[in-house]
C-alpha cells in the first residue's frame, strides 16, 4: 500500500479539509459577534460557574484517581503518615494477575454481567416502555410497580431475594419441590449458578430503570411521526423499528452508558449476599474487600481499582468521542 498508494492519499487529504473548513470559518465569524455582548459581570459569573465545578471535578475525581494510580505501586495499610508508604513497583499487578485466585473470575463475571444486562433487562425495559406508552388504563400503577425495585433500599433487596433463594427456607425451592418435586437447589452457594440467580435480581432492578428512560424518550417522540408512518401504511412493529427507534437515538446512547456503568460498578447486591466471594466475585467487590475494613491493603486494592479504571476508560473514550462527533454535527 505504501509503494503504490502514496500520491493519492495526500491529495485526498488536501481535498478533504475544505468542506469542514467553511463551517469552522462561519463558527469563528459568529463568535466575535456574540463576544462583546458579555459584560464584565457576565464574564465573572461565567468564570465562577465553570471554575467551581471544574475545581470540584479536579479535586473530587481527578486527584483521587491519580492518587489511586500512584498508590497502586505501593504497599500501605492506610494508617499513619505518608512516610509509611513503601514503593514496590508493579508487584501488586503481578500478584493480582498471578497469585490472586478471585481476580480472573471477577473479570469474567463483570463481563457476563454486562452482556446479560444488555440482552435481557434492556430489551425487556424497552418492551415494557412501549406497552406503557400506549396509555393503558392504570398505566401509572404498572409503571410504579416496575420502577419500585429501583428505589428500594439495598438492605431490603437483599432480604427479599434471601426469602426467595434460601436453600432450606426459600420460596423458590419450596415452589419447585411442590410443583416438580425437585431436589433443593443451592441458589446462593453453587458457584455455577449463583451469578445468574443474582443477575435475575440485578436485572429486575435494571429493567425498571431502563423502562423509565425509554418511557421518557417515547413521550418526547413527535406524534406526527407516527401518524405519518401510519398514513404510509406501516404496522405498529414497522413504525417502531423504522421510525420511532431511530428517533430515540439520544436515549439509546444514554441507555448504553447507563448499562455499561451499572455493569462495571455492580456491587451492592453481591456484597449483601456473600461479600462478593464464591462465584460472585466482581472487581468492585474485590476492591472493597481489600481496601475497607481492617484488611486495608490499600496498595493492592488500588491496583485492582486501576484495572477497573482502565476498563471503564475504554467505554468512556468511545462514549465521549461519539458525543463529541454528535456535537460537531
Amino acid at each position: 500500500m505504501a509503494s503504490n498508494g502514496p500520491p493519492p492519499p495526500p491529495a485526498a487529504r488536501t481535498d478533504g479539509p475544505p468542506p469542514p473548513a467553511p463551517a469552522r470559518r462561519t463558527g469563528r465569524a459568529r463568535r466575535p459577534g456574540t463576544g462583546p455582548r458579555h459584560g464584565r459581570a457576565d464574564r465573572a459569573a461565567l468564570a465562577l460557574m465553570l471554575g467551581v465545578p471544574a475545581l470540584l471535578v479536579v479535586g473530587l475525581v481527578w486527584l483521587p484517581a491519580a492518587a489511586t494510580v500512584l498508590l497502586s505501586f505501593t504497599r500501605w495499610d492506610g494508617i499513619g503518615g505518608l512516610d509509611t508508604i513503601e514503593w514496590i513497583g508493579v508487584q501488586n499487578y503481578t500478584d493480582a494477575f498471578t497469585i490472586y485466585p478471585p481476580f480472573e473470575p471477577a473479570l469474567r463475571n463483570n463481563l457476563v454481567w454486562l452482556v446479560v444486562l444488555f440482552t435481557v433487562p434492556t430489551l425487556l425495559g424497552m418492551f415494557l416502555a412501549v406497552l406503557l406508552d400506549r396509555e393503558l388504563r392504570g398505566g401509572s400503577v404498572y409503571q410504579s410497580i416496575f420502577y419500585l425495585p429501583v428505589v428500594l433500599s439495598l438492605a431490603l433487596i437483599g432480604f427479599v431475594w434471601q426469602l426467595i433463594y434460601s436453600r432450606d427456607q426459600g420460596l423458590l425451592n419450596a415452589f419447585l419441590a411442590m410443583v416438580a418435586d425437585a431436589p433443593a437447589v443451592d441458589w446462593f452457594g453453587n458457584p455455577d449458578i449463583n451469578l445468574y440467580a443474582v443477575l435475575v435480581a440485578a436485572g429486575w432492578r435494571h429493567t425498571g430503570y431502563i423502562m423509565l428512560l425509554y418511557l421518557a424518550g417515547l413521550k418526547a417522540v413527535d406524534p406526527s411521526l407516527r401518524e405519518a408512518a401510519a398514513i404510509d401504511g406501516a404496522g405498529p412493529v414497522r413504525t417502531f423499528t423504522r421510525v420511532v427507534f431511530p428517533a430515540l437515538l439520544p436515549i439509546n446512547l444514554v441507555v448504553v452508558v447507563v448499562t455499561v456503568i451499572d455493569a462495571l460498578r455492580a456491587f451492592d447486591i453481591v456484597w449483601v449476599i456473600n461479600r462478593g466471594r464464591n462465584g460472585l466475585e466482581l472487581i468492585s467487590a474485590l476492591v472493597t474487600s481489600n481496601v475497607i475494613g481492617e484488611a486495608s491493603r490499600v496498595g493492592f486494592g488500588s491496583a485492582l481499582a486501576v484495572v477497573m479504571l482502565v476498563i471503564s476508560l475504554v467505554f468512556i473514550v468511545v462514549y465521549v468521542s461519539t458525543m463529541l462527533r454528535g456535537a460537531q454535527r
Partner: peptide
C-alpha cells in the same frame, strides 16, 4: 493479620468446601 484472614483465607476455605 486481618488482610490475610479476610482476603486470602475466606476464599481459600470456601474453595476447599467446593
Amino acid at each position: 493479620r486481618p488482610d490475610f484472614a479476610s482476603v486470602v483465607m475466606i476464599p481459600a476455605l470456601q474453595r476447599f468446601l467446593r
